[in-house]
Design a protein around this nucleic acid. Structure first.
Lengths: 126, 126
DNA sequence: CTGGATCCAGCTCGATACTG
DNA sequence: CAGTATCGAGCTGGATCCAG
């Protein structure tokens, strides 16, 4: 393994690693709260408490937990103002904003097919 | 409520309903397995057992469960061939294919920012 | 205000066994 | 082969309390 490194092309080990990492990232990101946080953050900068209000239904714990995860993955930037009481602001990074574009697509899709889906459900349930 | 129905514009009740339904759909769709199933289904038609093999790591139960949900929402069409042993094929509907486009975007994003994210994680963890 | 830690009820999910 | 049902371990997530 690693013998093809010289060619500049990824070898099998690299591909395997990228695959498992990709799967991991996919799992991180493909969850309701993470997507909603990124969507609501949008182009704005929001404080913890503001996000808490915007993302309806999210608990204190889920918000911190997801914000840490997003920060760790470099999708969200966290800036702390050492005042009292503390003020912490969250904003999307470039990768975060790029991801938001696809989430926008998901939201548009939901809106566009709302009727179809509602009909389909009625048919299926009845 | 409903008094604005005559104008053809949605009234508050409609908006509230659309909102909660949208949230519900979002919750259905924004989960790892559903997204992976749709992505793997792509333009192809696959049998249950084929999907089981393609979507690595998914359990029998999760696959059936998600397929039912996707069928109920009209994203996946299920056709049963009354042979023995039974043959069941799954294929994306138009809404499903439309959704797949945005999921493709998500996959592209993951691939594109893999390096950024890996770096960010190292920085965060260390 | 932000956020870490703990507790535990409830749900998720995998394993297994069973039907047509 | 495809699908349902059941059971139980384990994780999730909400509530609560405490700290900086």
């Amino acid at each position: 393994m690693g013998t093809r490194r010289l060619t500049g092309l990824p070898d099998d080990a690299d591909l395997a690693r990228a695959d498992s990492l990709g799967r991991e990232i996919f799992s991180d990101v493909a969850n309701k709260w993470a997507l909603l946080i990124i969507e609501f953050l949008g182009e704005r900068t929001l404080r913890f408490s503001e996000l808490r209000n915007e993302v309806e239904g999210i608990s204190h714990k889920m918000l911190t937990q997801n914000l840490r995860m997003l920060e760790r993955n470099g999708l969200v930037e966290r800036t702390v103002y050492p005042t009292v009481p503390p003020r912490v602001e969250y904003t999307l990074t470039d990768p975060g904003r790029a991801l938001r574009v696809t989430i926008d697509g998901l939201c548009d899709w939901t809106h566009q097919y709302l009727g179809h889906i509602e009909d389909s459900r009625r048919r299926f349930d009845g």
